[in-house]
């Protein structure tokens, strides 16, 4: 059995991490369940624990030159717009009203879909990403947002795309001496967001399939698009070829025969990269069908958005 430490700040945490290789512990909503013993007993950990949930440097939401920075230990409740959690964050000066207002609906909705209220006050994006589950909801949203993960060590930081950081369930590129400090991504003015998670029960349901989509729109045409599917393979799947087929789309393309051909092609390309597996939660066939239904729903939502923007 190891020790547990609660460092005062990030600098101390990084020294401890470097010297002891202790296991980072944020909200504990994964770790406490994974290391659970019998009823009436605490968990059992082989390694020392390094608590990071309270570190000020990991709890900030910052708006900086068109980019949003979300600390690794910002509770999901703050991202999901729980008014009490946000009030606390504002009172502690971890976030400003402006920064909170920039959180795109894609991230807000994904955080809101993560478990139930009592879970969201503890669970963190750092834990969700470090877990690297292909069913991680906030991980899927961050991949769709093209976010970078900022990894801190005692002598500096490095940055890499969130998707590259994850290698497969439970596996990441986190080095022994590093902690996830934050995530960063641009939030353009004219954006389009889509989020849908399909699970069994409303709360606490493990995601069977999810789709997070994020686009930027310029003068009524789609300028960029990313489509991130969750729980359809060992990692989050970005359907980039499908997304490329749709670039430059405007309202009329959803009706024209050329546009329809491109949409059908895009769907085929999406189908090619989705390779779900059978498991106890559902079959591969079910997952693929649902994933493609979500794709169609996202396109309808996009068409509606472009229409409403061109109307005014």
């Amino acid at each position: 059995m190891g020790m547990s430490v609660r460092p005062v700040d990030l600098a101390e945490a990084l020294i401890l991490r470097d010297e002891s290789g202790a296991l980072p512990f944020a909200g504990g909503t994964d770790l406490m369940v994974r290391h659970r013993a019998k009823n009436g007993m605490g968990p059992s950990f082989q390694k020392s624990l390094l608590f990071v949930d309270h570190l000020p440097e990991l709890r900030r939401v910052k708006w900086d030159h068109g980019e949003l920075e979300i600390g690794a230990a910002v509770p999901m409740a703050v991202l999901a717009d729980d008014p009490r959690a946000r009030k606390d964050a504002l009172r502690r000066e971890e976030a400003s009203e402006e920064a909170l207002s920039k959180i795109p609906s894609l991230l807000r909705d994904a955080a809101f879909d993560l478990g139930a209220p009592a879970l969201r006050t503890r669970a963190t994006p750092g834990g969700n990403v470090a877990n690297a589950s292909p069913a991680g909801d906030v991980l899927t949203a961050l991949v769709a947002l093209d976010a970078r993960v900022i990894l801190a060590h005692r002598n500096g930081e490095r940055e890499l795309p969130v998707l590259d950081f994850t290698l497969g369930p439970g596996k990441t590129q986190l080095a022994q001496n590093e902690l996830i400090r934050a995530f960063r991504f641009p939030v353009p003015e004219t954006r389009w967001c889509y989020w849908r998670k399909v699970g069994t029960r409303r709360a606490n349901a493990l995601t069977k399939v999810s789709l997070g989509a994020f686009g930027t729109i310029q003068n009524g045409t789609l300028e960029s698009l990313s489509l991130a599917f969750g729980a359809v393979g060992p990692r989050i799947v970005l359907a980039d070829d499908a997304a490329k087929m749709l670039l430059g789309f405007s309202e009329k393309d959803f009706e024209s025969s050329d546009g329809k051909t491109r949409m059908a092609q895009a769907q085929k390309l999406a189908a090619q990269v989705i390779s779900p597996i059978d498991d106890q939660r559902s079959t591969a066939h079910y997952r693929k069908t649902v994933a493609l239904n979500l794709f169609e729903e996202a396109l309808r939502a996009l068409a509606k958005n472009l229409k409403e923007n061109t109307d005014d």
Binding site: G28, T29, V33, P43, F51, T121
Partner: peptide, 28 residues
Amino acid sequence: GEGECGACSVLLNGQLVNSCLVPIAQAD
């Protein structure tokens, strides 16, 4: 004992938590 049922709910600094998932060191 796994965050699924809510029977262990308490308010920690005014926020709802499952007390079965909170190590005491975090509540100090």
